[in-house]
Every structure is written in structure tokens, then in C-alpha cells.
Amino acid sequence: MAEGLIGALFVFVLATLAGAEVINKVPPTLHTPLMSGSNAISGIAVIGAILVAGDRNLNLSAILGFIAIVFATINVVGGFLVTDRMLQMFKKKEVKA
């Protein structure tokens, strides 16, 4: 195995352990917004999409990358906005109560 892959595996495992520690004792009302917010973060695939679409030659790779950019951007923009809408609603409810 290449050295680069080992380094990447270190990064992956440490990030996984950190990610598992970030979430604990979440109240049920926050389940959906939290899912939605972390889902928007997984739209980070947009970075990969930009990198593969960046090639000057307009070949199939660039076109697939373009579609991937559209998908991932919908995921990112839609995800963060939807999460904000949900959280906004909770706040109003709390004020009324």
C-alpha cells in the first residue's frame, strides 16, 4: 500500500473517532435538524466534483463532474436552508410557550 493511503487512513480513523464524540444526548426535537445539518455537510462532495470538473478538456469526466456539482450544490444549499427553516420554527414555538 502506498504511503499516502496510510496517511489518509490515519486521518479517516481519527476524524471518525472525533465525529462519534461530537454527538451525545440530543433532545428528540433536534433529531431531524441535526440529521439535516450533517447531511448538508456531507455535500462537501461538491469539492470533489469541482476538482474532477475542472479539467480544461470537455470530456465525459468533466460532464459527470458538472452533474455532480449540481447535485452536491442542491444538497449543500437546500440542506443548510432547510435546517435553518426547521430551527427557526422551534425558536418561535419556544417564545410562544
Binding site: 486521518v11 472525533a18 465525529g19 476538482l51
Partner: peptide
């Protein structure tokens, strides 16, 4: 690409816990 690996792992792990 590190940022993809880290952010993906973050969502993957926290998602399982959730």
C-alpha cells in the same frame, strides 16, 4: 483530498450515533 475524508468521516460517525 483531506477535507473530503475528514468531513465525510465526521458525518459518517455522528450519523451512526444519531
Amino acid at each position: 483530498n483531506n477535507i473530503l475524508i475528514i468531513s465525510g468521516a465526521l458525518v459518517g460517525a455522528s450519523g451512526i450515533i444519531l
